[in-house]
Structures are given as C-alpha cells and as structure tokens.
Design a protein around this nucleic acid. Structure first.
Length: 887
RNA sequence: GCCGAAGUGGCGAAAUCGGUAUACGCACGAGACUCAAAAUCUCGCGAGCGCAAGCUCAUGGGGGUUCGAUUCCCCCCUUCGGCACCA
C-alpha cells in the first residue's frame, strides 16, 4: 500500500487480478441457496459511453457487489443491443459497413466498461447482431408463427416520395425527410405483427404479481397504455345503403345525445361509400399529416368534414350526419365513434368548432332538488353549456330510459341492444399489435420465404439462422438494402424446391431485448435458446435497472415475451422481473459550433464554457474560453440517446479515477431523479476516498495488535464508545439504504462516519487496545461498505488492513451491526409552543411520555413563552418533540 | 393533445410514518501549516432585523385540513419522460 492514493496506480492492477481470479464469474450452484440476478438494461453500442451509462451500470454494479458481500451467488452479465438504425445511417453517410461500425463501437465501449471496473461476468457477453444470437430471434419468430401470434397485415409507413424509401419516425421528424427535406407521405404496405393484444388481459392481471417490486408510476403507465375499457359496440345503419357503422362506446347511457357519427379518415366506410371528392382529399391529407406529426402538440386542432352520409341512431331512430375527423383513430376500437358533445370533452370541442348541436342527456344527481325525469322544457333542445359534463348522473331526454342512473342505464341499454341485435357488450384495448417489420438491413432477417406456388413458407428450423449478407448497397434511397442483394433474396422453396424469394424485412430491435436476459444464463448454447435448468436457477431477474424512458414499450414487450415463453413451455413463470428500478434521465448540456462540413458539429467540454442563465435556469448565452479569447458557442442541446452528443466520461475517469467517478455519480442525486450533469463536486468524492485511504494507511501497522474481540479489549473511553456507536449506526443506515437503492444517502452516511473517525482523538502510537479495537472495527466496516461504490480502492485498503487474496476470496462479508450499540442513549427533544420551535431538552432515550412533558414544560425558554398563558393541551411525540398549545 | 413524474440555500441534495427544514457534499469566506503554492487540517456559511440574547420570513405560486404540512387535499405555473419505426 502506497502512502498516497492515486487511482491510476491501483485500478488497472485490481482489474487484472479480478480477471485472473474470475472474481465475477458465476455458475449455477444448487448448494448455494442464496442467488441473485442483477441486470442493467442492454446498452446500444453507440460508440462511446455517456454519463447516463456510467450511472446505470454503477447502480447495478454497486448492488451486485453488495449482494456478493452478503454471500449471494450473483449473476451480473452484459451484452450489446447491436442491431438498429444508427449503424445503417453510418453506412449511408460514410460508407462503413454496419457490422464494422458496430463491432468497432462495441470494442471501444467494452474497453470503457472495463476501465470503469464493472463487475461483469464477461464470459457471458452477447451481441444481438451475431448469427448465434439472432438465430434464436428467428426461432422465436417461427414459434410465434406456429402459434398464430405472428401474422401479416397492411399497415402504414412513412414514405419519402423523392427517394422512394421507407423512413423511421425519427428520420421523418417535422414531417420532412431527414436527407432530402421532401414532405413525408404515408404508404400502406404489408408488414409482420405480433399479436400482443391477445395477452392484454394477462398483462394487466399479472401486474398484481409485481406490485410492490415495480414503481407504481410504471405500472400506471402500462395500465394506461394497455387502456382496457368496458363498453359496447353499437351499429348505426347508414341511410339509403346496406352499410352499417359499428361504433364503440363506454357511455351507451349518453346515446340519446349523439349528434353525429364520426369515423377515422382511414375508416373502410370512406373507401366504400360514394363520396364527394373533397371528402376523399381531406381523408388523404389527414392520414399523411398524422404519419408525420407525432411531436408534442400534434393534432392540436381537431379537424373534420361532413361526408354527407346519414346514420340512424338505433335507440332514438334519429338520423345524424356522418363526419370524418382527425381525432378518431382507426387503430382504436372500431375506428368510429358516436359524438356526444354534451358529455365528452373531445366531442364538445369538435361540436363547438363546427357548430353542431349539443344536447344534454345526463344531469348531475341532486339530492336537495330532485328533478323531473321527463322535463318537457328540455326535450330536443340544444342547451347552452360551457363545457362537457363527463360524470355519471341521471338520464334525461332519453326516451324510456330517462330517469335512470348512468350505471343502471349502461347495463340495461346494452342488454336491450343485444336483444334487438344491433349491439353487444365489448371490452376494447388501446394496446395495438406489435409491428415488427422493418424495411431495413441492420436487423435479424425475418425467416420467411415467398413461393409463387406454396405462398408464405416458414424457413425450416434446421436452416436457421438466415444470415445477413456481409455487404450491400447503402444509398438511403429506394428499397431496403437487403432487397438489392440477389444472393440473399433468391432461394428455393423449402416445400416444393422451386424458385422463391426471401422476406427482406428485418425485425424490430425490441425483439432482441425482449428475451436477452434468458440467453445470459446460457449464452453460447448452439442447440437451443438456452438450457431450461440453467434458466430455472437464475431467473426471474431479481433486480432490473434502466432508464424510465423504457417504462412502457421495452418492459411491456419483455413481459409479453416471457408469457409467450411460458406458454410454449420454456419457463415456468410469466413475469420476468421481480424488482424494477427506473433511473432518471441524465441531461447534460452540450455545446457545439457548426463545423466546416455540412452537418458537422464540433463539441466543447462543458467545463471550458462559461454559461449565463436566465431566471428559469435556461441558457441565455455561452462563451467558450479559448486561449483567453472568448468565442460564443451554440446552439446548445440536451443529451439524447440517439444523437451521439453526450459528454464522454473518459476524461473524467482519467482525471479522477473510476472509483471517484462512480461514487460521485451515485452520490450526486437519488437514482430515480433526473440529473442535470455537472462535473463540479466530483472533487468531494475523491477527497473522501483519499481521507479514508490515509486513515487506513496511518493505522494499519498498529491495528495488527488490536484485540480480536470487544470483550478482551478492556474499558472503552467515551470517545471510543461514541465512535463505536457511529460505526454501528452507519452500518444500519447504509444496509437499509442499499436494500432500497438509496445510494446518495448511503454515501453521505459513510462520509459522516469518516468525519467521526477524524474527530476521534486517539493517535496510533498512544492508542489503547480498546481504541485500536474501535478504530479497526470502524475502518474495516467502512472499507467493506465502500467496496460496492469504489471497489478498486476498497480492495487496496482491505489488502492494506492485512487481508490476503482480495475481498471476494478472503471471506470478507458485509458488516453487521449491534442494535444496542446503534441505538442512542440520549435524545434531544424539540419543544414547540403553538407549533413554533422554542427550546430543546436532552433526555434519556427511554424517558416516559410524562417525564418528557415535564422536562419540556420546565425548560426555561419554554416557560418564558407559556408564562401567564393558559395551556390548552400538550402533544408529546416520544423521542422527538413536544408541542405546547397555549391561549 | 393524451399518459406518467418532478420543483427545497449560490449549486447537487437531506428530512422515507404529518413532528427540530436545509444532514452530506460542492462553491465561497476566514484561519493554521508553508519561503511560496498545491495538498491537508480547523472554523463559518438560507434571507432579513439585532451589539447580543433572540425575533421574523422561507421548501414553485395561491387556497384548505391540522396542535403541527417539504410531506395530505384542491386550483394554477414551470420543467422533464413516453406516445407504438431512436433504443
């Protein structure tokens, strides 16, 4: 152990030793009952680490260390979500092949992960773009197909008319093509879907199993995303035709207030019915706009057009116009709604805009003023309302149903509609099937062959994987690059052996991340996606950690996938994740200047930029201090996952070491908070590590003579007793904090303990045996608790304290606390008079309520405030506070 | 627009069950050590008033419940995440 702590002298050394000893390699061991699967979300290999990665993997790594020290067999793997759009963009822009680009990114990021000293079992590394991995994506696709869960249907994509190519949402943001600026259109093509909707009910019901382990907000978002609603289908006859429009409503009780039937612009009726040209044009325009405009604030303005058709309300017999409007979605319900402006906010807004009649059919239930159900004054009148009344109530103006309560009316009217054959009870979901087709190169090829004779033929399992070609033309225009590789496309039909063509769509990358956590249990299996025994030992995941931005899609897909795997007998459970932690976004302001090449950006280190903020904390201006010549830089942007503009933490790690970097990123804020990243403050983490290190260095020689146990240490001085109390109290706090991932307060508690050690007056040379015992207890506990945050320096100090062979090999285990020592024997009671703090009294911790009250009332300052007043009551909170209420 | 969150000193934050608001750290100020600097150590540090003891105000804004509210309820403002082809 050197005298001074320098990260660069020890971090590589310990990383080498960990690798040589296989310290983080885990195997299923039936003898070890305590095992733990700790997983962070699969990283996309964008090229370099950003601070959000450092945070995510530091959170998981700390937990993995904590559990190992507690004696668990810990699985902590890592891999790469290496398919996806950016690799293809790089190919288009710079002509690099996606695989080369991806693999060099992986190599660089792997190096950065290793530099951080993250405790992964690297033998289990996987990458989605390797045939040995995506073979099983394809295998699962075939299983979905067998079960009728994969199917093809026509659905729209973004289309650039100039380049005749399919664009992603991101490539068409703002409604224009990312490369040529042409207005993006919508085009219908046939695509593959997974029938996630057939699991909608289970995805909802099974939330019961994970409640408590998952953040409530995530469950709420998923519940809303699935969007179950109970209601009814009702058929409206289209006048003078054989057509019927089926609407879905959750409020059949309001049907007498329907002033129109509104259909989506892409509703089949629009295609079929004889319509005016302007209606068709409107429908076409809205469909195009909807594809393009998904940004926040999209569809601000409700727009519609009267189709000229009339629909007959099956309850009232009334004819109402049929409109087409942009606020009705063809994907949801039946793509048609009855518009009841008096009782629905969107319909209300729409009716106001187009001056449609508004008829009130539900009244608030009034107890003091019972109203007449049949009020002739209300019949068939448009009532002035300034907003929709969306609550349940009592029906009025509703024929024979008037006077009924909404709840009863819903049930009875649905029954009536069923008996008359124009409606039925229905449950609908907002959730839509999962579109997995991508008209792109860099993904797992969908294992399907098209034969003119046999039609759609699945690739036989024995022919998997369908391997991506090494090279293709990447122009960014025209059809998918895969379609232009004849060796790939042209094949023979597995059934009839005649000439056939391969599917050129590849799979959504969410497929890769829907089951990768199972593959980690058996990452190199060539015969099956994994061995069931191995998976049964490790899964489900005990703790999953990742960004809150994945709260719905990724986490819903992996839940779906797990249920599917259960149904085909691969696993025995349906919920893949016991506990979920969603970390907040890391936002870093980045500063750049436009470069000389078009689209080139030159980034600056934020610490070299002087920032002026407005009163809302937004950047008003930023000046680069460059050789003393200030240069204004900008624009400024938020760090995002897709634009590779994050702050590279490499410099920070070089300057402060990975231990200080990791510790600081966890100390800076609670892990679920969004974090506006700034480097200022990291010095504090480094100073703390140095401080602990120098305590260890100074005491380590003498501590060899410390007594083995407290009983033989002799009498403890008051100072030593205080130190022991602090130590045990800190172990308690830190252990509790770890269990709920409150790392920021855990670090703070350890800092307090190191301050307490600094206050301990004994010097190494004059210390008594009991002093030595107390110091050793403190230092060993501190080093062990530090290990999950700063493993390299913890190893170095543990070694310095005379333990051979490394933390995980020397039998080190997480410190335990003695409750009696952790408890305080004297407490300070706050005394309030009328809720304002007026004094403090010190009492023994086990003082009774009466003693507490008496001591409080007897306090000099309190007496000054209560003198001459009447004491109305005293509230005593034992161990904390007394509030004296006076008049 | 819809769904989900967040807002506390100059800054990151703490107070987890309705009970002492600002722990811990950063920045800053003063001092010690030093020829000097760095490092380290000690002390101070929400705002206003006051010589002081102390008093008043303060947890985005407004209202409410309570002996007592950062915490619970209602309304509003601002910021962030997701919205199905970024992952």
């Amino acid at each position: 152990m050197d005298e001074k702590y320098f990260a660069e002298n020890i971090e590589e050394k310990w990383q080498r030793r960990w690798e040589q000893s296989g310290a983080f390699e885990a195997e299923p061991d039936p003898a070890r009952a305590k095992h733990f699967y700790c997983l962070e979300m699969l990283p996309y290999p964008s090229g370099f680490l950003h601070i959000g990665h450092v945070r995510n993997y530091s959170i998981g790594d700390a937990l993995a260390w904590f559990k190992r020290l507690q004696g668990y067999n810990v699985l902590h793997p890592i891999g790469w979500d290496s398919f996806g759009q950016p690799a293809e963009q790089a190919a288009i822009k710079r002509g690099v092949m996606p695989r080369e680009w991806t693999e060099s990114n992986i190599e660089h990021m792997r190096g950065q992960f290793k530099q951080l000293g993250l405790s992964f079992d690297w033998r289990r590394e996987i990458a989605a773009h390797t045939p040995e991995y995506y073979k099983w994506d394809q295998w699962f696709f075939l299983k979905m197909l067998e079960r009728g869960l994969a199917y093809k249907k026509i659905s729209p994509v973004n289309w650039c008319p100039a380049e005749e190519t399919v664009l992603s949402n991101e490539q068409s943001s703002g409604g224009v093509c990312w490369r040529c600026g042409a207005s993006v259109e919508k085009r219908d093509i046939e695509q593959w879907f997974f029938r996630i909707t057939s699991y909608a009910e289970q995805l909802l019901d099974d939330m019961r199993e994970i409640e408590g382990g998952w953040p409530e907000r995530v469950l709420t978002m998923q519940r809303n995303w699935i969007g179950r609603s109970e209601g009814a289908y009702i058929e409206f006859q289209i006048k003078d035709t054989d057509e019927r429009v089926r609407v879905f409503t959750t409020r059949i009780d309001t049907i007498y207030g329907a002033n129109a039937v509104v259909v989506a612009p892409d509703h089949p009726l629009i295609e079929r019915a004889p319509l005016r040209e302007d209606v068709r044009r409107f429908a076409e325009r809205v469909r195009t706009e909807r594809m393009a405009a998904r940004a926040p604030g999209a569809l601000e303005e409700k727009e519609g057009i009267n189709t000229g058709l009339l629909a007959v309300n099956p309850f009232s017999g009334e004819s109402v116009p049929v409109w087409a409007a942009n606020y009705v979605l063809n994907e949801y319900g039946t793509g048609a709604v009855m518009s009841v402006p008096a009782h629905d906010e969107r319909d209300f807004e729409f009716a106001q805009k187009y001056s449609l009649p508004i008829r009130r059919v539900i009244e608030r239930i009034s107890h003091d003023q019972p109203r007449i159900a049949h009020d002739p004054a209300h019949e068939d009148q448009s009532v002035a309302m300034d907003q929709a009344f969306t609550e349940h109530g009592i029906l009025v103006n509703s024929g024979d149903w008037s006077g009924k309560l909404s709840d009863d009316a819903k049930r009875e009217m649905t029954g009536f509609a069923e008996s008359k054959g124009f409606g039925e009870r229905a449950v609908t979901y907002r959730l839509r099937d999962w579109g997995v087709s991508r008209q792109r190169f860099w993904g797992a090829p969908i294992p399907v062959i098209y034969c003119d004779v046999c039609g759609v033929v699945p690739v036989p399992e024995s022919d998997l994987p369908v391997v991506l070609p090494e090279r293709a033309e990447f122009t960014g225009a025209g059809q998918s690059p895969l379609a232009s590789v004849p060796e790939f496309v042209n094949t023979t039909c597995p059934k009839c052996e005649g000439p056939a063509r391969r599917e050129t769509d590849t799979m959504d990358t969410f497929v890769d991340s829907s089951w990768y956590f199972f593959r980690y249990c058996d990452p190199h299996n060539a015969e099956a996606p994994f061995d069931r025994e191995k998976v049964a030992y490790w899964t489900p995941i005990d703790q999953y950690i990742g960004g809150v931005e994945h709260a719905v899609m990724h986490l819903l897909y992996m839940r779906f996938w797990t249920k599917f795997m259960r149904d085909i007998g691969l696993v025995s459970f349906g919920e893949p994740v016991k506990k979920l932690m969603t970390q907040g976004m890391v936002v870093a302001e980045t500063f750049y200047r436009e470069g000389e090449e078009a689209g080139q950006k030159i980034y600056f280190n934020p610490s070299d930029v002087e920032v002026v903020r407005d009163d809302k904390g937004r950047i008003a201006s930023a000046t680069l201090i460059d050789d003393g010549h200030p240069v204004t830089v900008g624009p400024f942007e938020k760090m995002s996952k897709s634009a590779n503009n994050g702050v590279d933490p490499h410099e920070m790690i070089s300057a402060y070491g990975s231990d200080a970097t990791r510790m600081f990123v966890l100390f800076a804020a609670p892990v679920e908070n969004d974090l506006r990243w700034q480097e200022a403050g990291i010095d504090g983490a480094l100073r703390f590590l140095r401080r602990v290190y120098s305590f260890v260095y100074r005491w380590r020689e003498r501590l060899r003579d410390a007594p083995k146990d407290a009983a033989s240490a002799g009498e403890f001085s008051p100072g030593a007793r205080r130190l022991r109390h602090e130590t045990h109290r800190t172990i308690e706090r830190v252990t509790n904090d770890f269990e709920s991932l409150r790392y920021n307060t855990a670090v703070a508690a350890m800092m307090e303990l190191s301050n307490a050690l600094g206050d301990f007056k004994a010097a190494p040379l004059s210390a008594t045996p009991s002093d030595l015992f107390a110091v050793r207890e403190t230092l060993e506990s501190l080093v062990l608790m530090l290990a999950p945050f700063a493993p390299h320096v913890a190893e170095e100090m543990w070694d310095g304290l005379g333990h051979e062979g490394g933390l995980l090999q020397s039998g080190a285990c997480w410190p335990t606390f003695d409750e009696a020592l952790a408890r305080r024997d004297e407490v300070e009671i706050a005394v309030q008079v009328n809720g304002k703090l007026r004094g403090r009294v010190s009492l023994s911790a086990d003082a009774s309520e009466e003693e507490t009250r008496a001591a409080a009332l007897n306090d000099e300052r309190v007496r000054a405030w209560t003198e001459g007043k009447q004491i109305v009551k005293t509230v005593v909170v034992p161990g904390r506070l007394v509030n004296v209420v006076v008049r």
